[in-house]
């Protein structure tokens, strides 16, 4: 692994803080949907760099291919055709891990170190620690991780953390032929997005905007949307994603509380035994029963 433990800011199923000494620049991928032509070069680059070969499938009647994310397909173009004010629009969204600042997968994961978040914001699965329970699928607000049928480990986009660690941009960014994909510090990406949004607004997309949902603390993969008021138009991108309150209850303070109550129960039993002594049969009862059953 290229990363040092110094770079790990959060670690799944770990209740004490990770090293905070080193400060890092937060990175982000910016996906400018208005410039995407749906060529899927990013899908190919992802497969190539990560050395993954999704089994060749079948056409399911739409351009999406493969039709969904899999353990071996970490990014997928999702095509949506829609009519807007009498004009045909082809909305093409590159789907994959959003690298949430507050990752639901990491919160839900019960295996120490199976999911980490680096100081630069990248969320990564470490499959050697993964136990295959699928809790990350339950925690994710974006429906991203996939359990492999082959090895029962969970997989998703790594934001090419290995490339980023040595100063390279992710493979998908490197290969994008239209400049729809950008990578850099989150600051710079927001600045770039502003220019793109201003341009789109001047060209009739009054609701153009940045998708950096605050419900998950912002994301390290952001979209420039022509219709930021309707993210759901883009193959169901959630309007206001957040970690489900059910996951918060499931993984929140309730568990330490439950452990405390269980421990208190054991302690209370012990104290009860010490204070009251065992509940034994009284000598009188024993004598009476003896007389009843053995009168001779």
């Amino acid at each position: 692994m290229v990363w040092q433990s110094l770079d790990i800011r959060r670690r799944s199923a770990t209740t004490t803080p990770m090293p905070q000494a080193r400060e890092a620049v937060e990175v982000a991928k910016l996906i400018d949907i208005s410039q995407c032509i749906g060529c899927k070069a990013c899908q190919v680059a992802c497969m190539e760099w990560n050395d993954l070969r999704q089994e060749v499938g079948y056409c399911v009647g739409v351009y999406d291919n493969p039709p969904d994310l899999t353990a071996k397909a970490w990014t997928v173009m999702r095509f949506t055709e829609m009519e807007n004010d009498g004009r045909l629009e082809w909305l093409i969204r590159k789907d994959g891990c959003m690298h949430c600042q507050d990752p639901g997968c990491l919160k839900a994961c019960p295996a120490p170190g199976a999911i980490v978040q680096y100081a630069n914001g990248i969320v990564e699965f470490h499959q050697e620690h993964c136990i295959g329970c699928g809790y990350c699928l339950t925690g994710c607000p974006f429906n991203i991780p996939r359990l492999s049928d082959q090895d029962h480990k969970a997989y998703k986009c790594t934001l090419c953390s290995d490339r980023v660690a040595v100063g390279q941009v992710p493979a998908c960014i490197k290969t994008c032929p239209t400049g729809a994909l950008h990578f850099g510090s989150k600051e710079d990406m927001k600045e770039h997005a502003e220019q793109r949004i201003a341009d789109l607004q001047s060209r009739g997309f009054a609701n153009a905007g940045l998708y950096d949902p605050p419900g998950v603390g912002g994301t390290h993969v952001m979209y420039v949307l022509q219709h930021a008021d309707h993210p759901e138009w883009y193959a169901g991108l959630p309007q206001d994603p957040a970690i489900s309150p059910l996951v918060e209850v499931w993984k929140g303070w309730t568990k330490p509380l439950a452990i405390g109550v269980m421990a208190a129960g054991v302690l209370a039993s012990l104290i009860h035994y010490v204070m009251k002594g065992p509940n034994e049969i009284s000598k009188e009862t024993e004598k009476e029963v003896e007389n009843e059953t053995r009168p001779e």
Partner: peptide, 17 residues
């Protein structure tokens, strides 16, 4: 469906405790 799994996770953990 994931929403049912989330409910199940809460129910399972609470009931087990």
């Amino acid at each position: 469906p994931v929403e049912q799994v989330r409910w199940a996770a809460v129910v399972h953990a609470a009931t087990a405790a």
